[in-house]
Amino acid sequence: MNVFRLSGDVSHLLAILILLMKIWKTRSCAGISGKSQILFALVYTTRYLDLFTSFISPYNTAMKVFFIASSYATIYLIYLKFKATYDRNHDTFRMEFLVLPVLVLAFVVNHDFTPLEILWTFSIYLESVAILPQLFMVSKTGQAETITSHYLFALGMYRALYIVNWVYRYYFEGFYDLIAIIAGVVQTVLYCDFFYLYVTKVLKGKQLTLPA
């Protein structure tokens, strides 16, 4: 464990807590893409299957349990509890356009052709594009609530910090995993447009609006 990965995990945790707080406090999931949350639940479910087979540390186990539980809790809030506030008309990104190519890629490009490894690879690839429905929804509505932009910023920073962690581990531990690194770079690049808007607008107290 290093400070970059720890701060990445903290940023990830913060993003999830911000999202849950936003939905719970405002009793509304307006502006939140349920499809991205479904993809995240799929990402954690397929990645953390080793929860039962390999124990790394109490921290590792606790975080995996939390990520899985919170992703399903978010789906429950969006599609059941506050479904009246779910903006179905703007959450129209076709998930199958993401899941299917990622599934094929996981079978073609992986480190080991075993079920657990293919599921892990699928999860890594899927996570890199899972935010697209959410970013698409923000661009479609042309704006996002400030709290939602904080959620997106924390979520985007998590994987950006992981990239620094991978550089660190490459030089100090001789560790690298090209699949995770390339997917992580793609994932972070997808946020760049949003990062720019967040820094130039939200941090100056303005509303996050996109040129629709």
């Binding site: 990830h12 080793d50 975080m63 995996k64 001789g174 560790f175 995993d177």
Partner: peptide
């Protein structure tokens, strides 16, 4: 350089 088989990252 080795690639860690155990996924110790989240």
């Amino acid at each position: 350089l080795r690639r860690s088989a155990v996924k110790d990252e989240l």
